[in-house]
């Protein structure tokens, strides 16, 4: 039982670390590149506009998809590793 507890705690903190890292990327592409940091990226041209604009209307969405699939894939491995999957 005690072993189960530590196992479960380790699984949960691994999950939290993964969530935290994913949320940093999530915030970086949307709130960072697309909104607050857009003036900094203004020098990088992309098809008639700048990189910040591209992130606002295309890049952030594509990154969101990548984040979710990466998270799902990593969590499936964690489920297996800790024997907590279904």
């Amino acid at each position: 039982m005690a072993e189960d507890k530590t196992n479960a705690a380790a699984y949960w903190s691994a999950n939290l670390r993964l969530i935290f890292g994913s949320l940093i990327v999530w915030a970086m592409v949307s709130y960072g590149f697309a909104i607050l940091l857009r003036p900094l990226l203004a020098g990088i041209p992309v098809g008639g506009t700048d990189l910040g604009f591209w992130f606002a209307q295309q890049g952030s969405i594509v990154t969101f998809i990548a984040i979710i699939f990466h998270y799902a894939w990593k969590m499936n491995k964690l489920d297996e590793k800790f024997g907590l999957g279904e």
Binding site: W26, A56, Q57, I61, F64
Partner: peptide, 23 residues
Amino acid sequence: YFASSFLMGWTGGYVLLAMLLAP
């Protein structure tokens, strides 16, 4: 450009759903 909020907001919420709520 301001309307990009709709694009990011209505898709970025799924990242939160996938990691923080749905499972």
